Simulated assay, not measured.
Amino acid sequence: MNLEGCPTVYLLASRRNGTLYVGVTSDLMGRIHKHREGLLPGFTRDYGVKRLVWFEPHATMEDAILREKRIKKWNRAWKLELIEKSNPDWNDLSESFGFKPLG
């Protein structure tokens, strides 16, 4: 799947059932690299949230931002359900894009 330049909403987790982060980007691979390397100051770096557990491509950035805002308002149980529908084992999906396993 080529996501280059594709507006994408994504969920990161620190571990299974751990701390969650919802984000949006038009460069998922670049953003994941920055999260994994701790290059983005703030929440994800402070809490070690690096594991890509869910993502959803969109046709436009406007659609992606709207979806991100909606998901951010959801309660935790809904977010967990969203992840577990497509990734019940909480695998780090970034590995399927060539990233090395997290230590």
Rank of each mutant, 00 (worst) to 15 (best):
E95N: 11
A59G: 09
R70A: 10
T19S: 13
E4Q: 09
K85F: 05
G98L: 05
G48R: 00
L39M: 15
K69A: 14
K72Y: 01
K72L: 15
M1H: 04
E37G: 09
L102N: 12
E84P: 08
S14K: 03
G103R: 08
G5Y: 01
V9W: 00
R36S: 11
H35N: 04
E95W: 00
R16P: 04
A64G: 12
P41F: 11
I71M: 09
R70Y: 06
H33E: 15
L39V: 06
L93V: 13
I83D: 04
P57N: 01
E56R: 07
K73I: 02
G5A: 06
F99G: 13
W74M: 15
R76T: 10
T44S: 05
S94I: 03
E81Y: 01
S96D: 14
Y21Q: 13
N2W: 01
I65M: 11
T8Q: 02
P88H: 01
P88V: 05
H35T: 07
V22F: 00
V49T: 06
T19E: 14
G103E: 04
A77I: 12
G103T: 10
M61L: 14
K100C: 10
K50A: 14
V49R: 04
S94N: 03
F97E: 07
N75P: 09
R31S: 14
